[in-house]
């Protein structure tokens, strides 16, 4: 029911957006993410974008993983 895959918003038209996942595109409702912009990555659930991913936080998590790999 829940697609846990982040998708990129390629186009916004009113409260509908076009997301790109791999090579396919889908239309999703944007009613729940009023501040979304083209180029953002969103979590899509049941045909709606439910949250915008935070790039800064994502990078911080990844930096931590990198650190871990360098531990040994």
């Amino acid at each position: 029911m829940c697609i846990a895959v982040p998708m990129k918003i390629v186009r916004i038209q009113g409260d509908r957006g076009l997301v790109e996942i791999g090579t396919t595109e889908r239309e999703v409702g944007l009613q729940l993410v009023p501040d979304v912009q083209e180029g953002d990555y969103v979590i899509v659930h049941a045909g709606f974008a439910i949250q915008v991913l935070d790039e800064k936080e994502a990078l911080e998590t990844l930096a931590l993983f990198k650190e871990m790999e360098n531990l040994d």
């Binding site: 729940l32 439910i50 935070d54």
Partner: peptide
Amino acid sequence: YTRAVRPEGNPQALKI
């Protein structure tokens, strides 16, 4: 899961 979850959640969704 900090890249997707904020402490306050999604206020717009909660409001709706």
